[in-house]
């Protein structure tokens, strides 16, 4: 049974593959639930473990105080170390489905082409539609299909990077699964988390989904070209987001018309420069 949602699918439902427009190659990876736990080892000799030596017959109480997200956080730190050593700025892009993450990326990749090397990891439950759109811009991209999973985890990003091989000093965009709830809890090792909200959504989303806004450093308000047609207050969304997180910065833009994109590029370059080793 699948360990992610309890559905009847086998455990190997997560797939990660680099998009090659000439040759499509599906690769299976070990899902998180199937990785050997730390401290586990298989061998055929016998020795007494320290814990087992203290074991009274019957019941034993083990005071372990282990962080439940410890393994993901440990892997996230490894990803972070890799990014730091290679001067890579990794961004975790999170939002509801349909906020325009992929459109924002398409335009960004086209505009920054030749200026900054960019790599992309796409996370979706199914299909490589988004990765195919990204590949069409000429950027290197790996698609992670989480199967029934509702978010990316650090080990998936680690596995994806082995295929993607981002170069030194590059920008790595990780487009998370469209979901404003679950991805909030899982650190991927990113340098910054960027939450995207579009004006066709409710302006009270920061209050409805506070965890995501609480953990993001930048909030992009997308589709501002549609503001005249919708009942959405930019001021309200900012005010609500600030109630949840006092460190969040805001950029208003339209990935369709290009309005505000310069501010986004300036933010990217500033973030990248502060991380580049002197």
């Amino acid at each position: 049974m699948c360990g992610i949602c309890g559905c009847g699918q086998p455990d190997g439902a997560v797939t990660i593959r680099k998009i090659d427009l000439k040759k499509v190659n599906f690769g299976k990876v070990t899902p998180l639930g199937a990785v050997s736990p730390l401290g586990h080892h298989d061998h055929d000799h016998h020795h007494v473990h320290a814990a087992a030596m203290n074991q009274a017959p019957g019941k034993t109480v083990l005071q372990i105080e282990q962080d439940i997200l410890g393994k993901n956080n440990l892997l996230a730190e490894r990803n972070k170390g890799f990014f730091e050593a290679k001067n890579i700025l990794a961004l975790n892009l999170v939002s509801s489905p349909g906020s325009g993450k992929t459109a924002l990326l398409e335009r960004t990749l086209a505009d920054l082409k030749g200026e900054i090397p960019c790599f992309v990891i796409e996370g979706d439950q199914q299909t490589s539609n988004d990765a195919d759109r990204i590949a069409a811009t000429g950027a290197e991209v790996v698609q992670i299909n989480t199967g029934k999973g509702c978010h990316l985890e650090a080990d998936m990003v680690n596995e994806a990077m082995r295929q993607l091989k981002p170069t030194d000093g590059s920008l790595l965009f990780i487009e998370n699964v469209g979901n404003l709830v679950c991805p909030a809890m899982f650190d991927l090792g990113e340098g910054a988390r960027v939450v995207i909200i579009s004006v066709t959504e409710g302006d009270d989303k920061p209050l409805k989904y506070p965890d995501m806004f609480h953990s993001s450093q930048l909030c992009i308000i997308n589709k501002i070209d549609l503001l005249p047609y919708v009942n959405f207050s930019v001021e309200k969304v900012k005010e609500y987001a600030k109630r949840v997180s006092h460190i969040t910065e805001f950029i208003e833009l339209s990935a369709t018309t290009g309005a505000g994109m310069d501010e986004w590029y300036a933010w990217l370059k500033k973030q990248r420069n502060t991380r580049l080793a002197p």
Binding site: L32, P37, H49, Q55, I68, M185
Partner: peptide, 20 residues
């Protein structure tokens, strides 16, 4: 995501049971 949290709890428990 609660199910993947439970999967992590199971993983921790299985490792401890084996160690003990």
């Amino acid at each position: 995501h609660e199910l993947s949290i439970i999967a992590s709890i199971v993983e921790i428990a299985e490792a401890e049971v084996q160690k003990a």
